[in-house]
């Protein structure tokens, strides 16, 4: 049986706006991925534990409350500590372009701002995901 892309879709922090996260989860599942949705109020530790236990190929982080610069690098750091460097890390939500550089430098593979077509996100994941 072919390998399927396994994705974790997580909302770090206390932000409750999950329209985008759920929408993307659905779109990715329709594109043939197996998407684990973690729900709201995830700490970086919880997200990374989920990524490890699920052997995720991709971790998607969604944030609309302006806490991306705090949470995303924390997730990257913990992923490294667990030896999960080959997992694709993508972020989205209300993230101003001026923060993209910082987030990418800190180890995020891609940031998708407001208005990004979901198809572009699916394509990026399929093109850049690791082989197990």
């Amino acid at each position: 049986m072919a390998q399927k892309i396994k994705m974790i879709m997580a909302k770090p922090g206390l932000d409750g706006h999950d329209r985008g996260a759920k929408l993307l989860a659905r779109v990715c599942a329709e594109a043939g991925m197996e998407v684990v949705y973690t729900g709201l109020r995830q700490t970086p530790e919880m997200i990374v534990a989920a990524a490890e236990q699920e052997d995720a190929d991709v971790v998607g982080l969604s944030s609309l409350s302006g806490v991306h610069n705090y949470f995303f690098p924390k997730v990257v750091e913990l992923m490294k500590q667990k030896g999960l460097e080959d997992v694709l890390l993508v972020g989205g939500g209300i993230i101003p372009e001026e923060d993209y550089d910082f987030l990418k430098k800190s180890g995020m593979n891609a940031i998708f701002g407001p208005g990004t077509p979901t198809g572009a996100i699916v394509d990026f994941i399929k093109e850049n995901v690791r082989k197990r």
């Binding site: 599942a29 998407v35 949705y37 700490t43």
Partner: peptide, 22 residues
């Protein structure tokens, strides 16, 4: 269950298991 049409799946059970995550 997986979707018989797309082969993908939405796995939502972890949402209810947040308590156990740490």
């Amino acid at each position: 269950p997986s979707s018989p049409f797309t082969g993908g799946a939405l796995l939502g059970d972890r949402v209810r298991m947040s308590d156990l995550a740490d």
